[in-house]
Amino acid sequence: MTYVDKDYSASNGGAGPEGAPREDSALRLELRTAASTVVIATIRTVAADLAARADFDLDSIDDLRMAVDDLCAMLVRLAPADATLRCRFTAHPERIEVAADVDVDDDTGLPPTRSFSWRVLECLADEVSAEALPRELGQRGRICITVAKNAVSAQQP
């Protein structure tokens, strides 16, 4: 697993679907691993650790841990055998965004939004979206799932 904690957005794809302007106070972290189910536990632990250090409430920490687990699992299911999974975390004050993507074969579509996993993801995160990243010359396509989670979870009724 490779950790890249420098600014990553210049090389690939941009900061997220909204292309939000970068804040100086944001902390960025990128993980690159083989797209395999065995690494998911590590990635979700990193996510939870980041959320704890960003002073998220304990429910939100758990939610982010589950959301990252879920989105990584979805991407790993889409990925061919030798693909790379990339997770980029951006910790703003009171909010963490996670953009994760994998290489996919040309005919691979976005994860179905009517699936159980997607529904779970929508419950856990404050914002969720999926997109096919533009294919660069000589490269495979990539599918990216982005979630955002706020530091404080609204209390369940």
């Binding site: 002073d55 304990l58 939100s60």
Partner: peptide
Amino acid sequence: LGRAPRPS
């Protein structure tokens, strides 16, 4: 608090 606390 009516919600889970933060670490702080």
